[in-house]
Design a protein around this nucleic acid. Sequence first.
RNA 1: GUGGGUGUAGCUCAGUUGGUUAGAGCACCAGGUUGUGGCCCUGGGGGUCGCCGGUUCAAUUCCGGUCAUUCACCCCA
Length: 421
Amino acid sequence: MKIEKPRGTYDLLPDETRKWQALEDDLRRIAELYGFGEIRFPMFEHTELFMRGMGETGDVVQKEMYTFQDKDGRSLTLRPEGTASVVRAFIEHGLHMSALPFKCFYIAPNFRYEKPQKGRYRQHVQLGIECFGAAEPQADVEVISFAHTVLRGLDAELHINSIGCKECRPVYQQNLKTWLSAQSEKLCENCRTRLDRNPMRVLDCKVETCAAIAEKAPKINENLCPGCADFAARLDVLLTASGIPFVRDPRIVRGFDYYTGTVFEFISHQIGAQGTICGGGRYDGLVEELGGQPTPALGFGMGLERLLLAQEAMAKKEQEKTYRGIYLAPMGTVEECVRLCRELRELGVRAETDLCARSLKAQMKYADKIGVKCAAVIGDDELEKSKMTLKDMQTGETAPCALNAGAIVKHMNLLVEVEYT
RNA sequence: GUGGGUGUAGCUCAGUUGGUUAGAGCACCAGGUUGUGGCCCUGGGGGUCGCCGGUUCAAUUCCGGUCAUUCACCCCA
């Protein structure tokens, strides 16, 4: 019986892995520019961490976590998002005593039991960045700017909002709730349940009648406390000064309970219904909530599968076939080829030879398909004279070469120079 | 969790109004006079027609279920 990969997961075959590696290289380079160091943490945590971190109202905690018991009966959960883990590590290692702000990033898989569709998987990789200990809007710009740099040229719109602080949000939410309750009979079934759980979600409903009501509902941005309103205004000024285009969008409501103040999303309209490539914001209360010193903090998560979809949608430059290394075709004895391959690899050159006892013609075909830079036949003549002929597989030109690894490396470098200068 | 579409070769898809050995293109392998790839020609391997059950003399084809996938909702990256 055939066993297939679990639902909502995917394999990366070598060609696709190359794209991922190129992306990861790009991300690490940008992180370096912004001064964010890489952090790595476990794939699973105590279930309690996510329950307390993300809040118990959201779907993710409610029904999408991969939770299991280990042999000691502890409840563990495959990480559904990165922020809780980073905050846990921040507290556990006493990083509030380190140079603040503490800025870090991670590229790591998350796990959620969701129904898969385009741009949504049960295991998906996120780039996440977090910044601890900075309460000024400059920090918000720093984080948003990072995402903006990563998404440059991908046609993703930045939507930002403020959902208020501990002081003004509860007041607003209560007001909104009573306002909406007054006409709950006009709301869709879904929104009626949302009323209790998270009334701000009603503002983002796609049902026409609900959207019409949402139009007239009180807006959070008009009901912020002076502190939050001032913060938002200063953030707008800084974003504008940084040349980062954005729209204020009162419908942006993040799904996790820990968010406070600034929230934002980068949205692409070209990758299907799951258009949010990046989402994040401030969580000034989370460190304290999880047992640390009160510490302002913020960050974002970016779905790399969606980022790659957006890149494809942008018809990014096709990666050209790269020709690397050498193929040694044995005629008769394979001994010298096997030996030379090992030697060349020691010297850092990709080297391959025949593993199937195929005809020379078949070997040349294979050498062409796997994209080596050079090929050479090694038979009795070559062994006798200690000389061989190197063939450039792109141009077809040939060059004599001594039969040893050092000479091969030297000649190949020459060929490379001729080819690319 | 809800609602629709789709499952035939490694890939992209034809086809079967139910009836002998199920097709194409691409890919793969081999040959086209025994030491040089890409083009061309010839040949070849490869499919329990997703899986289980039902109707029938007969199911890949019809029906039901299931699994997978895909699109949307919900939610999120």
